[in-house]
Design a protein around this nucleic acid. Structure first.
Length: 220
DNA sequence: GAGGAGATCGTCT
DNA sequence: GACGATCTCCTCT
C-alpha cells in the first residue's frame, strides 16, 4: 500500500547529528549503502528542506570506466580528488545538476551519487522549486516526481554547481548537510547502475527495497 | 503504463 | 564537434 512520506519537524532535523568526515572517509560501496535512510538537509533562509536518502550509486574513481574521475583530474572533477565529505555537483544534458559526495582520503577520487530522496520536510517548497503545485490530496505518483531522480532532487533542493560545488557537507557552517535521525531501512538491495554506458554490469546502485521514491521502476 | 525521442549546454578531445 | 551518471512529452497499446 502506498503511503505519504512521514514528515519531520525542523526541530527534529536540528537534533539529528550530522554525518562526520570519517563517515565519508571510506569506500563508496560502504558509504553508498550506509547513506540509505540518512537525511539530506538544505537550509533555505529560515526554512529547512529535507529528504531521506532512498537511492545512491557508487563510483570507484580512476578504476571505474563509468566514473568522471576515470580519465584523471580535470577542471570539472577536481573536487573528487580532494578530502572526503565534499559536494561534487556537475551539469549534464544541458538541463540537470547532479549531486555527489566525495569519499576516501584526499587523492582518491571515489564518490557516491545521490539518486533519489523521500521528501520529509518542506515538501511544498520542494514541489514549488520543481514547478509542481502540491495539495493535501496529491497522490504518491505526484509526490514522487519531486525528488525521484538525480536531476529532480537537485532541483527540489536548489542544488547548483555555482552554489554547492566543493561545499564541505560535514561543516557546521554549511547550508547543505547529511544527518542521522536513527532511521534504519529494513531491506536494501544492490542493482546495476542507471544511465551509464560503461561498466554497466556492476551492482553499484543501492536502494531501499519497496520505497515509493526510488527512481525508475519500483524495486520489491 | 511503457517506450521512444528530443531538448539543451558544459566539458572534453 | 561529439557526447552525456537526465527529464519530459508524446505516442502507442
Amino acid at each position: 500500500m502506498n503511503v505519504a512520506p512521514a514528515q519531520l519537524t525542523a526541530a527534529k532535523l536540528r537534533e539529528a547529528p550530522r554525518l562526520s568526515r570519517e563517515f565519508f572517509n571510506r569506500d563508496p560501496v560502504t558509504v553508498g549503502r550506509e547513506l540509505l535512510g540518512k537525511l539530506l538537509i538544505r537550509r533555505e533562509g529560515r526554512q529547512l528542506l529535507a529528504g531521506r536518502v532512498v537511492e545512491t550509486e557508487a563510483y570507484l574513481g580512476q578504476a571505474d570506466p563509468a566514473a568522471h574521475a576515470y580519465g584523471g583530474r580535470t577542471t570539472r572533477n577536481f573536487v573528487l580528488f580532494g578530502p572526503p565529505g565534499h559536494a561534487y555537483v556537475y551539469f549534464i544534458y544541458g538541463n540537470h545538476f547532479c549531486l555527489n559526495v566525495s569519499c576516501m582520503p584526499e587523492g582518491v577520487a571515489e564518490c557516491v551519487l545521490f539518486r533519489a530522496l523521500e521528501p520529509v520536510c518542506g515538501v511544498e517548497a520542494m514541489a514549488r522549486a520543481r514547478g509542481i503545485q502540491p495539495s493535501p490530496s496529491s497522490s504518491i505518483a505526484q509526490l514522487r516526481i519531486i525528488s525521484s531522480g538525480p536531476g529532480r532532487m537537485s532541483q527540489a533542493l536548489g542544488i547548483t554547481r555555482e552554489r554547492d560545488n566543493n561545499k564541505d557537507l560535514t561543516s557546521r557552517a554549511s547550508d547543505l548537510w547529511l544527518a542521522d535521525d536513527g532511521f534504519y531501512p529494513e531491506r536494501v538491495m544492490a542493482t546495476p547502475r542507471i544511465g551509464i554506458t560503461k561498466a554497466v554490469e556492476r551492482p553499484l546502485r543501492f536502494a531501499i527495497v519497496g520505497n515509493d521514491y526510488v527512481s525508475g521502476k519500483k524495486i520489491g
